[in-house]
Simulated assay, not measured.
Amino acid sequence: MTALYDDPDFLSGYRELRRSGRGLNEDLEIPAMNALLSPGGRGDELRVADLGCGEGELALRLASAGASVVAIDASAAMLSRTTEHPQIRYLQEDLARLDLPASSLDLVVSSLALHYVEDFIGLVSRVAHWLVPGGRFVFSVEHPVITAPRDAADLLVDDYADEGPRQRTWFVDHVVKYHRTTGSTVETLLGQGFTIEALREPQPTRAQVASKPHLAIHRRRPPILLIAARLVSPRRTGPP
């Protein structure tokens, strides 16, 4: 993720997408994420890690509501645009190497970042190690029906069963994302001691499409998958 989000051409395109409001964040992902967290996205004095925090929007929402947050991203360019807050500690680190103290967190969140992670099983195992029993893992990723096709322009769900890397052109060439089926994502969580509290696939309403026609394509297939999981049977043998 470091090379991608620190690439000036990619970063310019990404920031213009967010500035223009043509992304999915404000219309779909942020409302759905807030709904899976406590009411209004509140932090409620929780100890939180935000994985792949980007410019820190989710971390700031949680900290402003009372959480103590460690916000982690591999990109120096993204972290340079974060907002300082007394209850946020920013950390530049690749999620593949991230290590946090055992049983030190009440909540781990991630917003549209984990489809860049190759070793999802290893990451979920470490998340389970960091959480207290009863702690929650709430995250969003690109929906598997989006990541599945080897040709990003293909609206058909194709090559769904073949998990692994997919190359995309998104502002720049050779952007690598990792396709995992919904089933294997859920099974990985269950295998690491989590239970699933919610699984959601937000899509635009007809009213949203009427006011923002560019969202129409997202009524044909869900663009985002969100999962809320709770650690009920933690493994305490340490991370892999």
Rank of each mutant, 00 (worst) to 15 (best):
S103E: 14
E93N: 10
E29P: 08
P31S: 03
V176D: 01
L199H: 01
A113Q: 00
I146Y: 07
L107K: 03
L215S: 10
P8K: 02
G135T: 04
R220K: 13
G54I: 11
D159P: 01
L4I: 14
E29H: 04
D106G: 14
A35S: 12
V70N: 03
L189C: 06
P223W: 12
P202S: 04
G54T: 11
C53H: 03
S80Q: 11
A63C: 13
E55T: 15
R150M: 12
S111P: 02
R168S: 02
V232L: 13
A148F: 05
I121K: 08
E84W: 09
S38T: 10
A65K: 06
R126Y: 04
A3D: 15
A210V: 11
A210E: 13
T237K: 07
I224H: 00
H143F: 03
L51N: 02
G135H: 04
T147H: 06
E45F: 13
P240A: 10
G164D: 05
A128V: 10
G134I: 11
G56P: 07
H143G: 10
E93R: 15
M1N: 10
D162E: 15
I217T: 11
A228K: 07
V108K: 01
A59T: 08
F137K: 03
Q167W: 13
R219T: 15
H174G: 10
A229L: 04
G40T: 07
